[in-house]
């Protein structure tokens, strides 16, 4: 099909183009990024109403609230990760590009991280202030989110690709992804708790990084396999 005078685009140029396109779409009108940020903000601010405004209680549970809501915000923004491209047929076009399904999944995940879950990590300190979060924990809170949010996008990609052909797969995706988020949540919150309680956050951060790396290996392969299945 390809015309001899047109050279195949290089893998890296397709990859960057796809990442740029997805980030632009996510930040554009009605994009997922602002919605996820809004969800993050509102859901976190519900907790003081739910558990009461006592500063000590809020400070104690702030790491857990922020981490749990961050991973919920991540899933909320995931259900169109592949589905929009699957439904309008652009996924079929992308498959013809030289980078293959693993590359597509990688670009999509990277774009989702840059546009949606990374901003959550940046916004987290502002919300921590509202929750009376202790000063000594801020760096570890942001650091744990920086290390852990790629895992959220990666693991989320597994659920998004498995449910790509499912109509109204959103709730199902929650059921598939949330159990797999548990290790990320445990080590992420563990690091912040350790920092706040004068412990050593480093072992937790190391385990969190390990979780992210395992997610990198497993998720791209699983997502590619799931997409291949959906496109058959």
């Amino acid at each position: 099909m390809s015309h001899p005078s047109h050279a195949q685009p290089s893998i890296s140029s397709v990859f960057t183009a796809l990442v740029r396109r997805d980030v632009t779409l996510a930040w554009g009108q009605g994009g997922a990024s602002l919605l996820a940020l809004g969800f993050f903000l509102i859901a976190v601010s519900l907790f003081p109403f739910g558990v009461g405004p006592e500063p000590q209680i809020l400070a104690r549970i702030a790491p857990g609230i922020i981490w749990v809501v961050a991973l919920l915000a991540s899933v909320v923004s995931l259900d169109r990760l592949y589905q929009a491209d699957y439904e309008d047929g652009s996924l079929d076009d992308l498959v013809l590009s030289p980078m293959g399904l693993v590359g597509i999944a990688g670009a999509k995940v990277l774009a989702h991280w840059l546009s949606t879950t990374l901003p959550l990590a940046v916004a987290a300190p502002a919300l921590a202030v509202l929750l009376n979060f202790p000063d000594e924990g801020y760096w570890v809170l942001v650091g744990s989110l920086l290390i852990g949010t790629p895992a959220l996008s990666l693991i989320g990609s597994i659920g998004a690709s498995l449910t790509v052909a499912v109509r109204r797969g959103g709730v199902l995706m929650f059921l598939l992804i949330l159990p797999l988020y548990v290790p990320t949540l445990i080590f992420g919150v563990g690091a912040v708790d350790a920092a706040v309680m004068m412990g050593d956050p480093l072992p937790h951060l190391a385990l969190l990084a390990a979780t992210t790396l395992i997610a990198l290996v497993v998720s791209l392969a699983a997502s590619a396999a799931a997409l291949k299945l959906a496109l058959e």
Partner: peptide
Amino acid sequence: AASILALVGVV
């Protein structure tokens, strides 16, 4: 699809 999920869950 379920099989892929099962393999991921082996972790």
